[in-house]
């Protein structure tokens, strides 16, 4: 077992983990952060996307022990309590989700994309989200959601 200290959604956690524990499993089973989900085993789906020190990563592809000393933001830490982050609000407004399973990862990827490019074109959005798979929406409304979020966050068209 290895001792780790990780800040997740603003709270610092200390834990002993087996080296083989994936970050996503530690978040879900160790911390009960079940908003972040697992959709595949080949790093394709992106459902497990979280921010690690501010950058999007697939939490199935990071060992929990590797996150030692870092800061993680999950979908559950994106906004406080019942508040809505602009990206969350935009996904609701534009019907950017159906079953909602890809949504935590999709939202975190969109947050990451907009942090780097506050005013993306449609092509940039589509390319920027290609590490996240959705089987319900056909992406049409996800793209609209990200455009709408960019507006809410002050990007201009």
């Amino acid at each position: 077992m290895h001792h780790i200290s990780v800040t997740v959604d603003g709270t610092r956690y200390e834990a002993d983990v087996e080296p083989r524990t994936l970050l996503v499993h530690w978040l879900r089973e160790g911390l009960g952060k079940v908003g972040t989900v697992v959709g595949c085993d080949t790093s394709n789906c992106g459902a497990c996307t979280v921010l690690l020190d501010g950058s999007s990563v697939k939490s199935c592809s990071v060992l929990a022990v590797q996150a030692d000393g870092s800061e993680i933001t999950t979908i559950q830490g994106l906004s406080a309590g019942d508040d809505w982050h602009p990206v969350q609000a935009a996904f609701k407004e534009c019907h950017g989700l159906q079953c909602g399973y890809c949504t935590p990862g999709m939202v975190m990827s969109a947050v990451d994309l907009l942090a780097e490019n506050p005013n993306p074109t449609e092509d940039e959005i589509r390319d920027g989200l290609h590490g996240n798979l959705c089987r319900c929406t056909g992406y049409h409304n996800i793209v609209k959601s990200v455009q709408y979020a960019a507006d809410l966050m002050g990007g201009t068209k």
């Binding site: 879900r28 952060k33 079940v34 908003g35 972040t36 989900v37 697992v38 999950t74 979908i75 559950q76 994106l78 906004s79 019942d82 809505w84 969350q88 996904f91 609701k92 989700l97 909602g100 399973y101 949504t103 935590p104 939202v107």
Partner: peptide, 14 residues
């Protein structure tokens, strides 16, 4: 959408 967008979901694996 509120619960789905805030990660307060109840998937079976949870």
């Amino acid at each position: 959408d509120a619960k789905l967008l805030h990660g307060r979901t109840n998937w079976t694996d949870n």
